[in-house]
């Protein structure tokens, strides 16, 4: 009787989760599998796809555009993760202290997270006009009146990273703050009684307690950075430019698929992106498990 009731409960459970499972299967699993199938074809959207095996993947190895986009993506990921982790943690630690006007400043600091990325891109495009506000800030005192922020092959990728970091640091700050709120106060009190300095308390108490938060921040920021697209599309005067210096894998997928009529190659790049994100996330999760 008991067994039958349990079984019945199990069945009801399955019925309840079925819509979500179906939704996930149709809108997540199927597109991934379909994308992989497309990556094995030569397909221009207008004609029937024809099977080419792993040729698209082999071709990527000496595809100059892909290699450029791959390199640019790695540079962007580096610039959009490590500084973000450190700076967002630093700001979170700052806002974890009690001081006057903290809540107001915290709200103010969180504002860049609110507008959509495309709005951020358009605003920064104006700020980074060669004769614009940022030029005045950066070079006005030295009499410099023109800096081609977005038209220089070195400055443009750097500008993308800075704007991205500016927009996401407040978001990760909130995650760190949530982590810091979970650190038992009595540990700090005990350490303080033992004469530990603020730095020692942070290093030996807060940081080890933030391990799970760190993995979450690392995973989310890496995935977010690997998938970057909007800034490079909307902020550069010409998407991916100048001279492909801001061409990233996400943008290359769009170009291959819908501008170059090379859907097979676009799907292959997507699969590579997927694999990269999977590997990085697995390493981070594995690291977390090992440390535990």
């Amino acid at each position: 009787m008991l067994k039958r009731t349990r079984l019945g409960r199990h069945w009801w459970g399955l019925v309840f989760v079925l819509p979500v499972v179906l939704f996930f299967a149709v809108f997540s699993v199927f597109p991934v599998l379909f994308g992989f199938a497309i990556s094995l074809t030569d397909y221009n959207l207008l004609d029937e796809p024809f099977y080419v095996g792993f040729d698209n993947y082999r071709n990527l190895l000496d595809d100059r555009l892909f290699l450029t986009a791959f390199k640019n993506t790695l540079v962007f990921v580096f610039g959009a993760t490590l500084p973000v982790w450190i700076l967002s943690l630093a700001v979170a630690v700052l806002f974890d202290q009690a001081f006057r006007g903290r809540e107001f400043l915290k709200t103010l600091f969180f504002l860049p997270v609110l507008p959509p990325v495309v709005v951020v891109a358009v605003i920064w495009r104006l700020l980074l006009h060669p004769n614009g506000v940022m030029t005045w800030f950066a070079g006005g005192h030295q009499g410099i009146t023109e800096i081609p922020w977005l038209a220089n092959t070195t400055l443009a990728p750097l500008a993308m990273i800075v704007v991205h970091d500016w927009a996401v640091i407040p978001f990760f700050m909130v995650i760190w703050l949530a982590g810091l709120a979970g650190v038992p106060r009595e540990l700090r009190e005990a350490a303080r009684l033992d004469g530990a300095s603020s730095w020692q308390m942070f290093w030996h108490i807060d940081l080890p307690q933030l391990r799970a938060t760190a993995v979450l921040v690392a995973a989310l920021s890496s995935i977010n950075a690997f998938q970057t697209f909007t800034l490079q599309y909307a902020m550069a005067p010409d998407p991916g430019g100048p001279a492909n210096s801001t061409l990233v894998l996400g943008l290359l997928v769009l170009k291959y698929g819908f501008q170059y009529f090379r859907m097979g190659d676009a799907a292959a790049v997507s699969v590579v992106m997927f694999a990269m994100i999977l590997v990085v996330t697995a390493i981070q999760l594995g690291f977390n498990r090992r440390v535990r």
């Binding site: 081609p148 038209a151 220089n152 092959t153 010409d238 991916g240 430019g241 100048p242 001279a243 492909n244 170009k255 501008q259 170059y260 009529f261």
Partner: peptide, 21 residues
């Protein structure tokens, strides 16, 4: 030509390399 967008992109990138790079 078929591949117009790719060719155009390549020309723009080449131009950028010369003028901005």
């Amino acid at each position: 030509v078929v591949g117009y967008s790719q060719v155009l992109d390549a020309v723009m990138r080449g131009r950028d390399r010369m003028i901005q790079g």
